[in-house]
């Protein structure tokens, strides 16, 4: 990958942010509604698994984790010559009447989350859908707001904020990369 211009968060603080997300979710949760996490592929999934692991310790019950692939739900795809990577939706539990927490790495325009909400609602009718993100970088283009936030950063609209998390990456952390000239569409 491109050399990062700025390290926004190192591996230890990334883990602390995940713990903070688990704390926020646990304190807002009402025990009479089943709690389920769904990660947005790709990096939302390992983050969701780590939050679920901490929630399991706090709440004393196993919190199941699913994964959504939002490729088929996006409204802004262009034929860019990229090769297809469809990893599939894998939600091994019933979303009906459950409290669903969508988990993603970076929240920016909100379009990914809009697509993820549609994908989840195609599987059933949850009691509620909430949003947990590791990083909120602002710049929303849709009326979407996170319920649980790990960290907020202010970066220029041309910057890229990238989360590295195992097992996808070896060097964990959150990085800011200034984009080469190529303008955002």
């Amino acid at each position: 990958m491109t050399q990062p211009d700025r390290i926004l968060c190192d591996a230890a603080r990334l883990t602390a942010h995940i713990t903070s997300l688990a704390d926020q979710i646990a304190s807002a949760h009402h025990s009479d509604i089943p709690l389920r996490l769904i990660g947005v592929r790709s990096r939302g999934v390992p983050i969701a698994e780590r939050i679920a692991h901490e929630l399991t310790t706090r709440l004393g019950i196993a919190i199941p984790v699913g994964a959504v692939d939002i490729t088929l739900y996006r409204d802004d795809l262009t034929g860019s010559g990229r090769w297809p990577v469809l990893r599939g939706t894998d939600v091994p539990f019933d979303v009906e009447d459950a409290e669903i927490v969508l988990v993603d790495d970076v929240l920016y325009t909100g379009r990914t989350i809009r697509a993820a909400m549609n994908a989840v609602c195609d599987l059933g009718r949850p009691a509620s859908v909430k949003l947990a993100v590791l990083v909120d970088r602002g710049g929303r283009e849709l009326p979407i707001h996170p319920d649980y936030v790990g960290m907020r950063v202010e970066v220029s609209p041309t910057a890229i904020v990238r989360v590295h998390v195992a097992p996808h990456d070896i060097d964990e952390g959150i990085f800011q990369i200034e984009r080469p000239k190529q303008a955002r569409k």
């Binding site: 990229r82 469809l86 790495d105």
Partner: peptide, 17 residues
């Protein structure tokens, strides 16, 4: 049908958008 449409980018955050 999906692949001929050519529209299957990854998430913008993963493409650097």
């Amino acid at each position: 049908l999906h692949l001929l449409s050519g529209k299957f980018d990854q998430k913008p955050s993963e493409m650097g958008l």
